[in-house]
Amino acid sequence: MLLSLAWSGSVGYGALISLATGDWVAATLACVSAGAMVGGICFRNFSAPRLCAAMIALSLGPTVPGALLAGQPLMFVLFLQIPMYLAAMTMACFKLNGMLIATMRAERENDRRARHDELTGLANRAGLVGALEERLSLRSRGDEALALLYLDLDDFKLVNDTHGHAAGDRLLESVAERIRGLLREGDLPARLGGDEFVVLAAGRTTEQAAAFGQRLIEVIGAPYDLGAGTPSRIGVSVGIAMAPEHGRRAADLLRAADAALYQAKFAGGSRCQTASEDDVARLRRLLAQTAAEPARRSAAA
């Protein structure tokens, strides 16, 4: 920054001295060079508008007193025009900076929307899978326990059918807030859509993940106020998968947790179920059959 200011000041000083000496060839070249450099300064440095404004003032500003020192009536044109030019280029610099900031904010907001659920503010499926893959790659270099808890609300459809979708949305927002209230540093909550939620819990063993799942059932199962004095109560079923016992990829862990969730639902709901070795073996057989299917079709053809 200091070198930029010094460079701009040297350009302005050269223009000032050229005008003061009365060498009109040198003065013309110096003023044209200073004016041309202002455009480059503006369009290359508008990301730092205050620095840009200072560089513009230092490079072309000295031509104003230089026009007075020249003692030529024609030079008074510079005395009148240069301040307006300096103001216009400085305003352009700040406007370009505003456009840059607006573009960056829009990109950041689009990235946030691409990775977060609009209703609850939790991560969506894309955000969850990206974070899970990253955690799994980091875990391969460490020994941190990693649990994935798959949640599905019980009787949520009844709330929508009875009280309307607006009340259902308020209920989902309340569920998200209750989940956030139980998290600790390193945990990631997500909503996959509908009434399905996922919590990626770091640093928990299988027993700790199961205890956390029971706590989620208790807290989410407490009564809700849907507004206008309308109380409601729902349950939640939880399926748990552990890494790497139940998978080393995001898709495998989600499948294992979903299978455990299905068992919890089948057993009556409002309970927590950890994926079993049978679930994992069944999923592996299914994946192997799916992978082998194209080869069988090619052989048959």
Rank of each mutant, 00 (worst) to 15 (best):
L60V: 11
G164V: 02
S59A: 14
T63H: 05
S140D: 09
K95Q: 11
D252I: 01
A145M: 01
H246I: 04
A241D: 02
V25R: 15
G164S: 05
A166W: 04
G12S: 10
A131G: 01
L58S: 02
A26N: 01
E293C: 11
I234D: 03
L122M: 05
E144Q: 11
L58Q: 01
E277Y: 01
E107R: 12
Q289K: 09
D111H: 12
T205M: 02
G61A: 07
R135Q: 14
K265H: 09
G14A: 14
R248A: 13
P83T: 09
R284S: 13
M84Y: 11
L51H: 10
P65K: 03
L148I: 08
Q208H: 03
L128Q: 00
E177I: 02
A167R: 07
Y85S: 12
E245G: 03
G239A: 04
D195I: 04
Y13N: 00
T103E: 14
L136V: 06
A30H: 09
A228H: 15
C31G: 08
V219L: 08
S4E: 02
G40S: 00
A209H: 06
R170W: 05
D143S: 12
A222C: 00
R178L: 04
A300M: 10
W7P: 00
N124I: 14
R191N: 10
R233Q: 15
L158I: 03
W24I: 07
L2Q: 09
I234S: 03
F79R: 00
F94M: 06
A259M: 13
N97W: 10
S18T: 07
D252V: 09
